[in-house]
């Protein structure tokens, strides 16, 4: 279980300093599918980065079971991410000079996963192992980044607007792959979006408004990527 307690985070200093996260607390159960929903600029990405250990909060704690990751040293935090966390960003950040299978290997090597090609097949890119990112469409690139994140067998998968750069059709497809793989592997999902419809796929929805949690609720039925509006 992930327990987030009283997170405060500001950027800048002195006069120009502004508080982006103004005391955020929430709990995420193992195997949950959480969507963090909010307008652009409300601090969603910042919160995601703090929970996933990419950034340190000014104050507050983030517990993974009994471990407070805000108390870890940089090296310990790196090792922690290696063991537990997978990322998917709006921009895919693939390595342009490496083929699809080598991009996925970046994730696989961290978990000593020799069987990473099955993950590439699972996102439907079995035929494109040796292609380079520049030769793929946006949706395909995002699926590579899904495969890369899953090949390291994360316990928690963090996604920051994963469909933000994709059109509706490809967006649905990518989300569908992610849900299918969640069923198969059983990881926890924490996804950031400003798209209300995507929130209908979640089990838990956390609504954010200018640095604060304004509402948390559970969806009674979780819709699939093809059932939601867009």
């Amino acid at each position: 279980m992930i327990k987030v307690k009283d997170i405060i985070k500001s950027y800048g200093n002195g006069e120009s300093s502004s508080q982006i996260l103004k005391g955020i607390s929430l709990e995420i159960q193992d195997g949950d599918f959480v969507v963090i929903l909010g307008a652009s600029g409300s601090g969603k990405s910042t919160l995601l980065n703090v929970i996933s250990g990419l950034e340190r909060p000014d104050s507050g704690k983030v517990f993974y079971d009994a471990t407070d990751i805000t108390a870890l040293s940089d090296n310990q935090l790196t090792a922690f991410r290696k063991e537990n966390i997978g990322f998917i960003f709006q921009q895919y950040y693939l390595l342009p000079d490496m083929s699809v299978d080598k991009n996925v290997k970046m994730g696989a090597d961290l978990a000593g996963n020799k069987d990473y090609k099955t993950v590439i097949k699972a996102v439907g890119l079995g035929e494109k192992l040796h292609k380079y990112p520049g030769e793929l469409s946006g949706g395909e690139q995002q699926r590579v980044s899904v495969a890369r994140a899953l090949a390291k067998k994360p316990k928690v998968l963090f996604l920051d607007e994963p469909t933000g750069a994709l059109d509706e059709q490809t967006g649905r497809q990518v989300l569908d792959y992610i849900c299918k793989l969640k069923k198969q592997y059983g990881f926890t999902i924490v996804m950031v979006t400003h798209n209300l419809n995507i929130a209908e796929m979640a089990k838990t929805v956390v609504k954010m408004n200018s640095g604060k949690v304004s509402d948390i609720y559970q969806n009674e039925v979780q819709k699939t990527a093809y059932e939601i509006g867009w």
Binding site: T78, G86, L110
Partner: peptide, 14 residues
């Protein structure tokens, strides 16, 4: 830089 920071995010040591 981008490659390095991506690797760091994924948990590769410096």
């Amino acid at each position: 830089t981008k490659t390095i920071s991506m690797m760091r995010a994924f948990g590769y040591s410096s």
